[in-house]
């Protein structure tokens, strides 16, 4: 088939669809022909009846009836043909969709290949290692500092916080008129020492807590 040098752009599917469509066209042409015959028989019957030739008018009408059954049969055939044609066209589209899905799947697989479970585990281990190392360094630094140093650092932080929050660093109250300087409560000095002791205790507790909570390396 194919008298013309048709290129490879025409597939076997296209030829099949063309064949179906050609058949459909032939049926349509046939229907046109039958419609003309129907019309002719109708007017023939009318003319015969006018002439008083009843039997032949009846014959013409019978022929007409026969042709009209043919017409309805071709209608059914046409329907079948068109259904087949459109299901082929739809199947071709489905094929394209499937191809698209396949392509997408390939890409997804490729990406997954570059992202294996082992490499993720290794990465997570490395991260844990880094965190542990960082912690060691801070612990060492903390160990180097004395409690007094630590206190000073924290005092500085508190002062900074006050500044940031807009609280004046020291509320300078007007001097209170002299009152008997008997030490009733803990003296200012004593209070300061107490605060330092409390802080030292809190730091120790925090350190212990941190050791307990130290991230466990993920089991390989």
């Amino acid at each position: 088939m194919g008298a013309l040098p048709s290129s490879n752009r025409i597939s076997a599917h296209d030829r099949a669809v063309l064949n179906l469509k050609v058949q459909r066209d032939k049926l349509k042409i046939y229907q046109k022909k039958i419609s003309v015959i129907l019309e002719a028989e109708h007017s023939a019957a009318k003319a015969l009846l006018a002439k008083g030739d009843k039997p032949r008018a009846l014959l013409a009408l019978r022929r007409r009836k026969y042709q009209s059954t043919l017409l309805s049969q071709t209608d059914k055939q046409l329907e079948t043909l068109e259904a087949l044609t459109s299901s082929i066209e739809f199947a071709l589209i489905e094929k394209d969709v499937l191809y698209g899905l396949k392509q997408g799947n390939e890409v997804l697989k490729q990406i997954h290949k570059e992202m294996t479970v082992e490499s993720v585990e290794r990465l997570m281990e490395d991260t844990a290692e880094g965190i542990r190392y960082q912690k060691e360094i801070s612990d060492m630094l903390a160990g180097v500092m004395t409690n007094a140093d630590e206190d000073e650092v924290e005092e500085e932080l508190a002062a900074m916080e006050r500044e940031v929050n807009g609280v004046p660093p020291e509320v300078v109250l007007p001097a209170i008129p002299s009152a008997p300087q008997t030490a009733l409560g803990p003296s200012e000095e004593g209070e300061k020492a107490l605060r330092a002791k409390e802080r030292a205790r809190a730091r120790k507790a925090a350190l212990e807590r941190a050791v307990e909570e130290e991230p466990q390396p993920i089991a390989a």
Binding site: M1, G2, A3, L4, S6, S7, R9, I10, D14, R15, L18, N19, K21, V22
Partner: peptide
Amino acid sequence: AQIFGSGEEMGVKFF
């Protein structure tokens, strides 16, 4: 477009 088939049964596919 591409014309194919022969004789009475010619068809055309569009691109």
